[in-house]
């Protein structure tokens, strides 16, 4: 069974650019255009990985969604799903973000503009192929 990846981004072009390389690699890709739809999909699909844009709508929507998915109040099934956060650029958010588990419940960071090879590298790190034999 193909591994399922949920991509949440408010930019349809980014969704497309993320979907193309992932599908070529055999992943099953689901899309959500905002945080509400993203949360809904995460609950119903229970994907193997969530790729989340940090700057949807407001500057902090991505962070809030990450908290909802991985915060202490989130259900265990959601907390198990790794999150890869896509950030526009380091310099422009008032918040600091680094993959530090005590600050942000996120497993990896990726910078825009998305480079498809880098994207696939990071996805492979979070979804090691040996576990795909289920």
């Amino acid at each position: 069974m193909a591994r399922k990846i949920l991509v949440i981004d408010d930019d349809p072009d980014v969704l497309l650019a993320t979907r193309l390389p992932l599908e070529r690699e055999g992943y099953e890709v689901y899309e959500a255009l905002d945080e509400a739809e993203g949360l809904e999909q995460a609950k119903s699909i229970l994907p193997d990985l969530i790729i989340l844009d940090v700057m949807m709508g407001t500057h902090t929507a991505g962070f809030q969604l990450a908290q909802e998915l991985h915060g202490p109040d989130a259900p265990a099934v959601l907390r198990r799903i790794p999150i890869m956060m896509v950030t526009a650029v380091h310099q422009t958010t008032p918040l600091r973000f680094r993959p530090e588990s005590d600050y942000l419940p996120v497993q990896a960071f990726l910078e825009k503009p998305l480079d498809p090879r880098r994207l696939l590298d990071e996805v492979r790190k979070l979804l090691p192929p040996e576990q795909t034999g289920e």
């Binding site: 072009d13 193309l20 070529r24 526009a88 958010t93 503009p113 998305l114 498809p116």
Partner: peptide
């Protein structure tokens, strides 16, 4: 500046990501 940064960078970044996915043969 923060808002302008996002508004200016976002379209270029998504355009670039699309071009790269074609360039690297994912289509």
């Amino acid at each position: 500046t923060r808002a302008a940064t996002h508004e200016l960078r976002a379209p270029v970044a998504s355009g670039l990501a699309l071009v790269r996915s074609i360039e690297h043969g994912y289509l």
